[in-house]
Design a binder for these strands. Structure first.
Lengths: 243, 243
DNA sequence: TAGATTGTTAATCGATTAACAATC
DNA sequence: TAGATTGTTAATCGATTAACAATC
């Protein structure tokens, strides 16, 4: 859709659903490499990522033809191609706003560092937290009042919001005004931002709510007998007792 | 698709995409109620949740006809219906495995408690952590060796895995063997589990990777001139220099 | 060559959305 | 009644998937 002008190299017509799976493949390939695997078939990769085999092949075909028929994909080469596509051959600078339990956990989260994300600052507005050193980090918690100056100075590529919900939108606005165009939001609210800014919402409670929904379904199914006859009887009884 | 037998009350043919948005509507409705709003239109709700208005109406119609034409939806009533559908009129018991930074942050995460999730235990295998009291929690960190006994005793409805990636699959297997059917996994690996078990994967690093992908696109677009002529020139030069 | 596995086609499925009749 | 807004239809879009020709 985007970028259909000219004969220039097609700047990513990769579907969103595929982009969201590339990190999954990357993770699996890293493990395969660590296990000294040289090649991998689409079916193996599918098994490791719980994705359909045809879908794996389709996804990878968007990046180009990096497989060999009858053989599979070269682990090292495919890993490089995916990492390049995801922009992980460069390091990304991340600013975290909010040094509560979650903010601090994210600041020292190994999964960021190992994937090329450097936490350049952690901000908070609580005087008790400002100045505190974070375990496993060089920098101390900075004051949220300095947000603009710090963005200016440290040039983060993206920001993480881990503040209370009450201030999240205001922090978002300030980040956008500073020119930040990628925001990962953990506050349980949908942030309003201009179109050119990408906001990804992660709501940890929401994930549990979805689990609860399906758990409830299971409970209903267990108490609701499986056969049509009994279901029918139950619904007649329900109608009767409702009168 | 599921549950098309008999005249029994249709046990949720609600599309997955709709289920995933119900908590969003619920959150917005709670805020509207706190702001003393009595009714809300689909367009208002759409604005608050960054969802298309027609989609809001379609989603809500799966729950039944709870709106009034020309007026909108009763905030209190719709909130109740959504909460009921999501199973949030009952409390859910949650077991957390892993008392590292993330596990501890989750254990005291307000977004769990306020939405009816009670953390009944936090487990770890590190002797230094076992027995430690968690801030804002009644219980101390228990030993992961007691997992089976604790599930038996505390009867959690779902479990959260916040362990290192190396032990995540093994913990998952043990949870499944104990009869846990809903698992929220924060370890960066795709867990293998039987079909009747629902596993939701949350990979915090993955979210940043998707942001990085789009950030990279933006950078390419910025350096790649916008006009067809120049794009064409560039690609000719690329071809030349490649020789 | 025979066997294996990719890359792509085409059918299908599920989700999104504009439009509007129904109706408060 | 006039104005507003729901609930639903139907068109469209994007994603998934089986199947298989291409080819190593």
């Amino acid at each position: 859709m985007v970028n259909q002008r000219s004969g220039a190299p097609a700047l990513s017509d990769i579907p969103d659903a595929t982009v969201a799976r590339l990190p999954l493949y990357q993770r699996a390939l890293i493990r395969l490499r660590d296990d000294k695997a040289v090649t991998v078939s689409s079916e193996e990769l599918a098994q490791l990522t719980a994705v359909n085999g045809a879908k794996v092949r389709k996804d990878l075909s968007y990046l180009g033809s990096y497989g060999v028929r009858g053989v599979g994909y070269d682990v090292e080469y495919l890993l490089y191609q995916i990492s390049r596509e995801l922009g992980l051959t460069q390091d990304w600078r991340v600013l975290i706003v909010g040094a509560g339990n979650l903010g601090r956990a994210l600041a020292s989260y190994a999964g960021f560092a190992t994937r090329g994300f450097e936490v350049v600052a952690v901000l908070d507005s609580d005087p008790k937290l400002i100045g505190q050193r974070l375990p496993g980090s060089e920098t101390a918690v900075a004051s949220a009042t300095d947000l603009e100056a710090l963005v200016q100075e440290l040039r983060p590529d993206m920001a993480v919001i881990a503040t209370p919900v009450e201030v999240a939108q205001q922090i978002c606005d300030r980040l956008v005004d500073c020119g930040i165009a990628g925001i990962l939001n953990f506050a349980p609210t949908v942030l309003q931002a201009p179109d050119h800014v990408e906001v990804r919402e992660v709501d940890l409670g929401l994930e549990l709510q979805i689990l609860a929904f399906h758990e409830q379904q299971r409970q209903h199914e267990a108490s609701n007998p499986e056969t049509a006859e009994i279901d029918l009887r139950t619904s007649i009884e329900t109608v009767r007792s409702a009168r």
